[in-house]
């Protein structure tokens, strides 16, 4: 088997722009899926609105392409009804952390066994490059001509409000580390969030001074460093996986005990 068996290559070329980082995520996800034996009888994909959400259409699984911002309640319900399935959420930073922010807050709290891959390109790409919840302060975009005003959302801090949760930081340049992060997330017995910095050359990168996607990847190579082993918190531009203490109770698809008792003995 090959990772290509997980992808509908007959639908290529994708709608993604040349130089887009999403394909690099899809390749690593497909590779991990192949390694772990994920197939269309044991895995469901749930994707949100944005360029990233198209990934579900390109992969060999049943896939739910949700409303904007609503991946997490859909995914959590699937995981509750069918606890034996691998439920993989793939979406962008705007979908997951802005319009879907309230669901993220509460999914983290309830700790369902769903795996979230966040394509974090720091911009609203599909709609033309407006500033987003992860856009660094000062970045000029088509909706922040004087530079983005507010601090980006602290994803690591949010996820780690649940001591049982899993947070990984990676970039599309660091393919091996990204593959490891995705693999460990899928194997994690609870909520896992993989925060993947990735380039949107057409609707962000070129406007902030990168001539091509290659320069953006080289920038990630230069700027990002592996966190020291055993780090419990990642500094800015540090790569690594911060794992909480796995919840002691397995997720049970049971009435009033829905969720998996996060934070409870």
């Amino acid at each position: 088997m090959s990772y290509k068996d997980k992808i509908k290559t007959d639908l290529f070329p994708t709608i993604w722009c040349p130089g887009c980082g999403i394909g690099l995520i899809m390749t690593q996800l497909a590779t991990v899926m192949d390694d772990l034996g994920l197939d269309k009888s044991n895995t469901v994909m749930v994707t949100g609105i944005g360029c990233t959400g198209r990934m579900g259409a390109y992969m060999q699984f049943d896939s739910v392409y949700t409303l904007h911002g609503r991946t997490l309640p859909v995914a959590e319900a699937i995981a509750t009804v069918r606890p034996e399935l691998n439920v993989i959420v793939v979406s962008g930073d705007g979908d997951l952390t802005s319009i879907g922010g309230n669901h993220l807050l509460h999914a983290i709290r309830r700790n369902p066994r769903i795996k979230v891959l966040c394509n974090n390109n720091e911009i609203y790409g599909l709609t033309g490059g407006q500033t987003g919840p992860t856009t660094p302060v000062g970045t000029k975009t088509v909706s922040s001509p004087a530079g983005a005003t507010f601090s980006p959302v602290n994803l690591q801090g949010l996820v780690n409000t649940n001591p049982n949760a899993f947070y990984a930081k990676t970039t599309v340049y660091h393919q091996g580390q990204m593959r490891r992060a995705i693999k460990e997330a899928i194997e994690w017995p609870g909520f896992a969030f993989v925060d993947i910095t990735s380039q949107c050359i057409e609707n962000n990168g070129r406007r902030i001074g990168f001539p091509s996607a290659n320069e953006m990847l080289n920038y990630y190579k230069k700027e990002y460093r592996q966190a020291p082993p055993g780090s419990t918190q990642l500094a800015n531009h540090q790569l690594g996986i911060v794992k909480g203490k796995p919840a002691e109770t397995e997720p049970v698809p049971v009435g009033a005990a829905s969720g998996n008792g996060s934070g409870e003995a």
Binding site: K8, K40, S41, N42, T43, V44, G56, A57, M59, Q60, F61, D62, S63, V64, Y65, I78, R82, L85
Partner: peptide
């Protein structure tokens, strides 16, 4: 879901 198809619910 996961009945062996590759459907897209979009």
């Amino acid at each position: 879901l996961a009945s062996g198809h590759t459907r897209l619910f979009s």
